[in-house]
Design a protein around this nucleic acid. Structure first.
Length: 575
RNA sequence: GUCCCCGUAGUUCAACGGAUAGAACGAGGGUUUCCUAAACCUUAAAUGUGGGUUCGAUUCCCGCCGGGGACACCA
């Protein structure tokens, strides 16, 4: 289904051609209601290109433009903008179409890609913490949106399950492990033995040496160490799964770093052979002397002691994703500190001849009230599990106050949807590059651009339909689908036009990987709905307004639910 | 030292190069015999700084100031 924006752009292009003018400018939503619904800067752009008067050009375009069934007569204003005001019957007709469209007006991408999205990436033997929220929630939302737009998406969890830390873990396992504690809380016990081993190793050279030997044995395939490693991985994965279940996150594949282990030697040989890599100070390095921003800093792909590192692993990961997974696009949702690292990885991929579209999608940090990286009182990372538990508990407390009559099972369900939704939405509703200050009060507020505010709009809609089915038992989904839409009140028009713009907004999220654009849209939609709800009685109004308004409610509910689903957020039936 | 990101009302956040920079909280004023007032309406209040490009700059370019981060064998 063509959006108003696309339709106007097409009509504009036709008019430009008919007027003998080159294609120029674009159609965008009006910046202010006073200027109508959409605007184009075509005359301004052409004026510059052709050196002609913008207002004269605007008139020329208007003369060639036939929008009589769609808009009021377009006007030009200001420096030479052409403003479009849609006719209410055009908005009503499109709204009626949307009711019958399962995709709610969102067209699939013209050229679908095969996209590997790398996000989350927790480390084995360490708890997931607040620092994992942004990558996980952002990556998941991008995956949902890309998938809805018709791309083939492969969600890959690049787990940190290999590396030097396992020397510590295995040493600790052999000498310090408390089996009972491991039963109770596996990750806490793994963290404990890791930390204690680390402390011993810093003071005792013998321990340090023993740790190193355990690592060497693991890498050499020693059965005992391999078994210990495997068990720590399994225990950690179980813990991750619990978090993913609460967060409603799903992966298609989970290829940890260990998966690439037996490919690393080949990678280094290949890069040496092709001349991309060279030996420097005993290490195998790739230099980027021709890329100024990478300067003289090499990427080390084999250490001088012969060991491989995460750069080697990531090169092997590129191979796998392109050759085995057949990706033409790779999105790496990994924090900004790794910008240099991924610039190097992508530069190497280019030199190897890979043409896939690699994007490193970075994001800011989550800060505490003190504007420093969010930590517990004792200075530790805040465990994700604790944070999610607290979100649900706080939501539960608010629900108890606001709506104590709900059943116990409803309270449990609502608290989870509201609490988890609030955490996710707070993250996604902000521009990903900026650091943000974590605030329970703000994210759980029912006012402002928050998950509870949006969920409440949905709940109000559901409430209407519960009442509607009693008052009008014949009303059903089919009735809504065939309803005539009539837009008389200004609040109805505003709401309907917003609904028509869902299809314009969703694709733009992927332009710069910004789910906050969708979040802002949903906030405005909810806001328009609340205004409509206050101004326009639904169930008490006379036909045909009643059916029309019920249809608007139905469609708003569907768009809200779909929009929130694309952000990974669930909606409750009541709250 | 080099490179990257950020700097917007008192506070927390918005604004694909567009017109008079939007919200929310906080402060002030209003709305409920009516579908969830967990809502709505309304007043005051901001682009760090100096240049440049442009018909038009919060947005792009350069300098400065402030905050954060990365820069050879950790991941």
């Amino acid at each position: 289904m063509e959006t108003f924006q696309a339709l106007l752009a097409r009509k504009l292009a036709e008019a430009l051609a008919a007027a003998g003018l080159p294609q120029a400018g674009s159609v965008s939503p009006a910046t202010d209601p006073r200027f109508g619904d959409y605007q184009t800067n075509a005359a301004l752009v052409l004026a510059k290109q052709l050196g002609e008067n913008p207002r004269a050009l605007a008139q020329k375009i208007l003369d060639a433009l036939d929008l009589s069934d769609l808009c009021d007569p377009p006007t030009f204003a200001g420096a030479g903008f052409i403003n479009f005001t849609l006719r209410p019957d055009a908005i009503a007709a499109k709204t009626a179409d949307l009711l019958r469209d399962e995709r709610l007006g969102v067209e699939k991408a013209a050229s679908p890609k095969r996209i590997v999205i790398d996000f989350g990436s927790p480390n084995v033997a360490k708890p997931m913490h607040v620092g994992h929220i942004r990558s996980t929630v952002l990556g998941d939302a991008l995956a949902r949106i890309a998938s809805f737009l018709g791309h083939q998406v492969i969600r890959d969890n690049h787990i940190g399950d290999w590396g030097t830390q396992f020397g510590m873990v295995i040493y600790g396992w052999k000498h310090l492990l408390d089996r009972a504690a491991l039963e109770r809380d596996p990750i806490a016990e793994l963290v404990r033995i890791y930390k204690e081993t680390n402390e011993k190793a810093t003071t005792d050279p013998k321990v340090r040496e023993a740790v190193r030997e355990e690592l060497v044995k693991l890498q050499a395939g020693d059965p005992e160490n391999f078994a210990i490693w495997k068990e720590t991985v399994d225990l950690s994965m179980k813990e991750f799964e619990r978090a993913y279940q609460v967060l409603d996150i799903h992966y298609d594949i989970q290829r940890g770093e260990s998966f690439y282990n037996d490919r690393l030697a080949t990678v280094v040989e290949r890069l040496l052979k092709s001349g991309i890599a060279e030996i420097s100070e005993g290490a195998v390095c790739v230099f980027f002397r021709d890329i100024p921003e990478l300067g003289e800093k090499p990427a080390i792909i084999r250490k001088s002691d012969g060991g491989f590192n995460y750069t080697t692993t990531d090169i092997a990961t590129v191979d796998y994703r392109i050759q085995d997974l057949k990706a033409d696009t790779v999105w790496l949702v990994v924090g900004a500190p790794q910008i240099l690292h991924f610039k190097q990885i992508i530069a190497i991929a280019r030199r190897e001849g890979y043409t896939a579209d690699f994007r490193h999608i970075t994001f800011g940090s989550i800060l505490g009230e003190d504007r420093k990286l969010m930590k517990t009182r004792s200075g530790e990372n805040v465990p994700l599990r604790d944070l999610l538990d607290e979100a649900v508990q706080r939501a539960r407390k608010i629900i108890e106050e606001k709506n104590p009559d709900l059943s116990e099972s409803e309270k449990v369900e609502i608290a989870e949807k509201v609490g988890i939704g609030a955490v996710k939405y707070y993250d996604l509703s902000q521009y990903r590059m900026t650091d943000y200050i974590f605030s329970w009060d703000r994210m759980l507020s029912f006012q402002g651009n928050t998950a509870p505010y949006l969920q409440n709009a949905y709940v109000r809609i559901r409430s209407i339909f519960r009442k509607a089915s009693v008052a009008a038992p014949l009303w059903g989904a089919s009735g809504v689908a065939s309803a005539e839409i009539s837009l008389t009140a200004p609040e109805e028009r505003t709401l309907a036009l917003k609904l028509c713009q869902f299809g314009e907004v969703v694709p733009t999220v992927l332009n710069d990987f910004r789910p906050n654009i969708l979040a802002n849209y949903l906030y405005e939609l909810a806001n328009s709905f609340h205004a409509f709800y206050e101004a326009c009685p639904v169930l008490k109004s006379e036909e045909p307004a009643r059916s029309s308004r019920l249809a608007l409610c139905e469609l708003t509910g569907r768009v809200l639910a779909k929009g929130l689903e694309l952000l990974g957020i669930k909606v409750p039936e009541r709250m």
